[in-house]
Design a protein around this nucleic acid. Structure first.
Lengths: 115, 115
DNA sequence: TGTGTATATAAGTATATTATTATATACTAC
DNA sequence: GTAGTATATAATAATATACTTATATACACA
């Protein structure tokens, strides 16, 4: 089975549009190495919970991220099986690590996930 | 001298936003292998001349493309010296070739440039 | 069951984006 | 100079986007 080498322009622009928002792009970079739940993003971005939820919904709608409920929380993670994951990864790989936000969360005792 | 390995998120999202428009993304892919002038784009995209000019202006404003006047025409080309060219190229490389549009232009005798 | 916490959705608003039409500018050729 | 072609810019209108506030839903635990 062949791996697809190129991405339809229509499709690519749809993905780029979603990634072109600073908040969503940072979310994706964070998710590329750490699972996060909604309340962590609210803390990291200092944004309202509905605003965060709506960004995540957009990412979820085209399946850039996966969600998994664990008890009270819903954990988001990168969907590595995305058909255009190569494109997505090649972009995220060129962004600086966002570990500082995660460390900050931990320091404040607000980190939920373990990774 | 070191080559920069990562792109500031703010900067990356600015670039992605410009590339996320279907017309501009196609323009950039075309320009990555062919110089083009404004009237060629008007023909290719079947859009008004001001609409094309405004897209090119946005690309030019953050120096994704260069312009060069030759007589009546202004030729646009990719700016390979762009500070974030790696990011840009890695995206364009994953898009399908758009040579068909150029062949179509030539067939109709509307191609201006030689490449 | 009731209360608290986490998340999602709906409706509304402010702002950004992309087109259009009208007009200006720059060059060519007579 | 004038006419024609190529391109840019300005003003405007339609649409899309990203927030806000209010409310609904889902789970935890006493």
């Amino acid at each position: 089975m062949n791996v697809k080498e190129t991405v339809d322009i229509q499709r690519a622009s749809q993905i780029l549009k979603l990634l072109s928002d600073k908040t969503r792009l940072t979310m994706m970079k964070l998710l590329s190495s750490h699972e996060c739940c909604v309340c962590e993003f609210v803390e990291i971005f200092k944004m309202s919970q509905p605003a965060i939820s709506q960004h995540l919904r957009k990412l979820r709608d085209i399946e850039l991220v996966k969600e998994e409920r664990r008890g009270q929380w819903i954990f988001y993670s990168i969907n590595c099986e995305h058909e255009e994951y190569m494109l997505i990864k090649s972009i995220l790989d060129q962004l600086p690590e966002q570990d500082e936000s995660i460390h900050e969360l931990k320091k404040q005792g607000l980190r939920i996930s373990c990774n």
